[in-house]
Amino acid sequence: MPAAPVQGNCVGLLRRLHRLPGCLPFGHNRAGSDRQGPYLDFSQGRCTLCYLCAGACPKGVLTLPNEGERTAIGRARLIRDRCLVREGCSICIERCPEGALTLIFGRTIRVSKRRCTGCGGCRHACPAKPKAMSIEPLNGRP
């Protein structure tokens, strides 16, 4: 979904959208940080892929998927040395709405590139501090 940094009046629009039921809040990075423009704030929950943001985007940076198209806004990535799976934790697997996470021999978690939508459900649920899951954009941007 996100194709480029969003600036200007989009920021206010996106902040208003998150007040609607089911919309994930957006944060905003300042110029000079690794990321610029709004971003999904997975500390607040997961994206439900409702597309309200894409439908409201005045600049066409966020786009609606074609009918029947499977959408991914990012991809989950496990940071192994932070993961609590060896201590019996599997909350990320339980909370993934796409069934994209698999426990491997009780020692690690595999993320299915085919099934993961990047919704952030695993990151939001992860109890590790710092989080053991990150959501990486599909387009390679930070």
Rank of each mutant, 00 (worst) to 15 (best):
P2D: 11
P2E: 15
A4W: 02
V6R: 12
N9F: 03
V11R: 11
G12D: 09
L14I: 09
L14S: 04
R15S: 12
L17P: 00
L20T: 11
P25K: 01
G27Y: 07
R30H: 06
G32A: 12
S33C: 08
D34L: 15
D34P: 06
R35L: 10
Q36P: 01
P38R: 00
D41C: 02
D41P: 00
Q44S: 10
T48E: 13
T48S: 12
L49Y: 07
L49F: 00
L49V: 02
L49G: 04
C50W: 06
Y51S: 04
C53G: 03
A54W: 07
G55W: 01
C57L: 09
P58M: 08
G60W: 03
G60C: 11
V61I: 15
V61D: 01
T63L: 13
N66F: 07
N66Q: 15
E67Y: 09
E67Q: 12
E67T: 11
G68T: 06
E69L: 07
T71C: 13
T71H: 13
T71L: 14
I73E: 13
G74S: 10
R75K: 13
L78A: 10
L78W: 10
I79P: 02
I79S: 08
I79V: 15
R80K: 14
D81K: 06
R82T: 02
L84A: 05
E87H: 08
G88T: 08
G88I: 02
G88W: 04
C89R: 00
C89I: 05
S90D: 13
I91R: 13
C92Y: 09
I93S: 07
E94Q: 12
R95S: 13
R95K: 14
R95M: 15
R95C: 13
C96R: 05
P97W: 09
P97T: 10
E98K: 13
E98V: 00
E98T: 04
A100H: 05
L101G: 06
L101Y: 08
I104F: 03
I104S: 04
G106W: 02
I109S: 03
V111I: 15
S112P: 06
R115Y: 14
C116N: 12
C116M: 14
C116K: 07
T117N: 08
G120D: 10
A125G: 10
C126W: 08
C126Q: 09
A128Q: 04
K129P: 01
P130G: 03
E136T: 11
P137W: 14
L138S: 08
N139M: 03
R141P: 01
